[in-house]
Simulated assay, not measured.
Amino acid sequence: MSYPDKLLAEDEEVVRHLHPHWLTVFWPVLRLLLIVGAASFGTAAIPVGRQQGLLRMLVLAVAVVLLLVTVLVPLLRWRTTHYVVTTHRLLFREGILARRGRDIGLSRITDVAYTQTLWDRIINSGTLTIESAGDSGPTVLRQIPDSDGVQQLLNHMIEEDADRRAQESAGYVGEYYGGPSAR
């Protein structure tokens, strides 16, 4: 069973599964190309001599460390960050080795707002701020693709969840009093 399906209840379905906007991986990919190019040039530029092998290994070691720190970590961070809207809740998970997450029931969400800079509007990205009942404060989700569409989706899902809960409670009251839904 794949993520996020393993986190779902029986009657819960994934409506939208997002990662941060794809442009968040632009700079790591550009750094990958620059580091590989510089390392290739550096190893080729080392003059022939007794120390050539050692110097080439040193250049490659520096390149590998740079690749791990400036490329691999941001790519893994992007890949392991999940924003999932389901029929019952909003799930947020992030982290490579240490994980952190938050689940907010749709019935607990009191406000969903989004903000976009001019650049965010150009690339169709933004920041969602989700207010929920409780003391934990707002949840801020950054670099959300189609942030205005996700905000509208969340508002729609909140209304559907409220309707579903009202129907369930009406059915329960009818069953309790022996009404038509008791049959």
Results as ranks from 00 to 15, higher is better:
residue 1 M to R: 06
residue 2 S to L: 08
residue 4 P to S: 10
residue 4 P to M: 03
residue 4 P to W: 01
residue 5 D to G: 04
residue 6 K to H: 13
residue 10 E to W: 02
residue 11 D to S: 15
residue 14 V to I: 15
residue 15 V to M: 12
residue 17 H to P: 04
residue 17 H to T: 06
residue 20 P to C: 08
residue 22 W to F: 14
residue 25 V to D: 05
residue 32 L to I: 03
residue 38 A to V: 12
residue 39 A to F: 10
residue 39 A to P: 10
residue 43 T to S: 09
residue 43 T to H: 07
residue 44 A to F: 14
residue 46 I to D: 03
residue 46 I to T: 10
residue 52 Q to F: 06
residue 52 Q to G: 05
residue 56 R to G: 07
residue 64 V to I: 15
residue 65 V to H: 06
residue 75 L to V: 15
residue 75 L to A: 13
residue 84 V to D: 01
residue 88 H to A: 02
residue 88 H to K: 05
residue 89 R to Q: 06
residue 92 F to D: 08
residue 93 R to K: 14
residue 96 I to D: 05
residue 98 A to V: 11
residue 101 G to R: 09
residue 101 G to Y: 09
residue 104 I to A: 03
residue 104 I to L: 10
residue 112 V to G: 00
residue 112 V to Y: 01
residue 112 V to N: 00
residue 113 A to H: 11
residue 117 T to V: 13
residue 118 L to F: 14
residue 120 D to T: 03
residue 124 N to E: 13
residue 126 G to T: 07
residue 127 T to N: 03
residue 128 L to Y: 01
residue 128 L to M: 07
residue 137 G to V: 04
residue 140 V to K: 02
residue 146 D to K: 13
residue 148 D to L: 10
residue 149 G to I: 06
residue 153 L to D: 03
residue 155 N to D: 13
residue 158 I to K: 02
residue 160 E to H: 13
residue 166 A to C: 03
residue 176 Y to M: 12
residue 183 R to Q: 00
